[in-house]
Design a protein around this nucleic acid. Sequence first.
DNA 1: TACTTTTATTTGCAGACGCAAGCATTGCTT
DNA 2: AAGCAATGCTTGCGTCTGCAAATAAAAGTA
Lengths: 131, 131
Amino acid sequence: MTPDLETRWQTLDHEWQSASRALEHALNTHHDLSLSEYRVLAALEAKHDHHHRMQVLADLAGLSQSATTRLVARLEAQDCGLLARYMCPTDRRGVYTEITPAGLTKLARARQTVQETLHDLWDTENQDLKK
Amino acid sequence: MTPDLETRWQTLDHEWQSASRALEHALNTHHDLSLSEYRVLAALEAKHDHHHRMQVLADLAGLSQSATTRLVARLEAQDCGLLARYMCPTDRRGVYTEITPAGLTKLARARQTVQETLHDLWDTENQDLKK
DNA sequence: TACTTTTATTTGCAGACGCAAGCATTGCTT
DNA sequence: AAGCAATGCTTGCGTCTGCAAATAAAAGTA
């Protein structure tokens, strides 16, 4: 007896919201990163050559192209330097975004926080005591 | 062998994003409703007496109090009339939001769309063929 | 009762997002 | 090669959101 479709959705929704809020807050507090920014860093790090076209990056991060443009611009800015952009040499319309060493360092630290947060949320004895 | 914590999160995230986008788009197109608005209507309808305090409504919808205030104000507006607000008689700080008959009708129709969308997404033979 | 503290909601403000329009570059057709 | 369509990214603009400050009312305290 699988539950109603909408009930299944509500369950998924609640679970996502609680995790999402926890991660967003933890990343924001400890690393001054948003969840979207973390997704982008992680997506780039996951690729063997550490770079992606804007379009696929947007897709992987679950963002619109315009949001991706601006997010990458933010993380590329002088006082940030986690990402770098360069034109695709073969197709000068395309833009590659790559993660910098600073970005990799930042991601590694943030990943710690993510795992701890998920651990606290999912792997703890006093499960669901946080209401 | 349960997967890595972060992998589990990514799975949840992807699943939520695909469903969320689909629902948001379907509701927006067919009913001029956002997913947040749908959550609020559904939360009110679910309660036996069809009304809630702002705080608990915010909590149920997964929104901040300020976002809830404005969302309710929007759905209460003249050309909308899906919700109604009134002061709590015993505690004049509190505000009750109730769903109107128009709101119930709207919700019933929207719920159809939600179920169809989820059905298309989860209960179809050609699963995951939509990329 | 007067004063302080707490609670419930709303408003000011700035950030992030999506859509649609704009621009530049490539590909297709004749 | 010239003209037109398609592609890839960026910018303009309006909306939704959260945080923090403001407001209003209740509760606690002297």
